[in-house]
Amino acid sequence: MKIKTLLLSALVAGASYSVSAQTTEPDVKYLSPKFKDNIFISIGVGMQGYMNTDNFDYGFGKVLQPLVNLSVGKWMDPYWGLRGQISGWQSKLYTDVNRLNNNNKFEKFQHKYINLNLDFMLNLTNLWRAYSPDNKWDMTLFLGPGLSFGKFHNKQMDVLINGSIGLGGKYNINKYWAIDLEARTHLMSTFFYTNKYSGQEEIAGRSYQDGLLSLSIGATYTFGGKNFARYESGAQEMRQQLNAQINNLEAELQQTQSQLEAARIAEQIAKKEVAAVEAEKMQVVAKTARKDFAQYVGFTINKTDVKTEQMVILQAIANYMAENPDVKMKVVGYADKQTGSKYFNQKISERRAKNVYNLLIKKFGVPENRLSYVGLGDQDQPFKVNQYNRLVMILGEK
């Protein structure tokens, strides 16, 4: 029995060292636990200018126009996400196409437009540093394709394919609200064309490719608040497996120690019964029937059945009670605090106590009026080591 205890102790120590050696750099990731998590809506207002060679000649600052955008999206994890955005207002173009026939004046053209874009978002801040829910500042790169809808003069609505790229800064007020500052550019074929001066449809400006440059400020609301769950993989998974093995080894070690203690007590009682006179027996009863008298039956995590190797403890207690008819015992069940809810731990402690109580009565013949049982769940932890509290204590009563 001592050899088994020593071997189990060595295995526990070796497994503990292995866990320590393999978990110095755990692989930690964060993910959205559910699809509905980390969905947001943003609105922004600002200014935008139409990028065209003619506008730069005329003065880019004179063609700035208001801008409004609305976005809906989702962060898949703290590093990347997707969003859809609608933006637009009005664009201006000052061109010198017909300046010689117009008293040397630039002609002004303008049109209403709307952009629809699908953006891939990359959080640069979380790539550069470790993610934390307490981070206040974020910088995001976004880019993607889209469609631009616009109407020039009395022409029909034009639909153009665009591409865009931008950079956003975000200040997180709390897990629900954030303030945004966003700079963006759209590139597309030109919207501006006219047949005013040649009788044929021509490009109004000198460029066949145009763009929009915008700057906006706004706010973002995340439904339910940001929620990224910690996910551990790689070496961390191995640590969890090894921890489970350690728990099992510690449970077996505790069971073996309980068996040794029970065997030792049984042997002492037997020797005293043979050698002691009636007065000495009464002294043994008085001594062993104190309230702090305790025997232990250990259990595996989430289990309530008494293992075969633990029966020696119950047999020793039954023998002792048979020889000492004035002794009464209380069977008290416990559960470890770090596993399961309070309700679950209360129920499992009661079942453990009831199983030991039933075995002592039905299998080992202890009178029912000399036993009682109770389950204390995890409200009381007899031992500092968490796994040791998966047990039943048999206590002597005066």
Rank of each mutant, 00 (worst) to 15 (best):
V297L: 03
Q315R: 15
N104F: 05
Q209H: 13
Y221L: 04
A15H: 15
K175P: 02
N55Q: 10
D134I: 02
H153N: 12
Y373V: 10
F192N: 03
E368I: 13
I179N: 08
N103D: 08
F56S: 14
G375S: 05
E250L: 00
E252Q: 13
I43G: 14
Y197C: 13
Q236W: 10
S341F: 03
N52P: 13
D27K: 03
E397I: 14
T140A: 00
N102V: 14
L93Y: 00
N52S: 14
R230T: 11
V72G: 04
V97E: 00
E280F: 00
Q65M: 11
Q85T: 12
K363T: 14
L213C: 14
T95I: 11
N324H: 05
K2F: 03
K328L: 13
L7M: 09
T23N: 07
S18I: 06
F106C: 13
F223D: 10
Y296K: 08
F192P: 04
M76F: 12
D37W: 04
K62S: 14
K196P: 02
I173M: 14
I217K: 13
K398W: 03
P78E: 08
A279Q: 08
L242F: 11
A286V: 01
T300H: 03
Y79H: 05
I265Y: 01
Y30S: 01
N389M: 07
I217S: 10
G340Y: 05
N98M: 15
I301F: 02
P145R: 01
M1P: 09
G365D: 06
E368T: 13
M47I: 05
A294I: 06
L127K: 13
G211L: 00
A335Y: 05
W75T: 08
V12W: 09
P367N: 08
Q209G: 12
V63Q: 05
A286C: 03
A21F: 09
K328F: 10
T256F: 04
L260Q: 12
I165G: 15
N302L: 15
T23F: 01
A178K: 02
K342N: 11
R290D: 15
Y320T: 11
T288K: 00
A276H: 03
V331T: 04
S233P: 00
L31D: 06
K74C: 00
F56D: 08
F383Q: 08
I43N: 13
P26F: 05
A318M: 06
Q240Y: 08
L213W: 04
T288M: 03
K398L: 07
T53W: 02
A219H: 07
K151H: 06
W80I: 15
N195C: 07
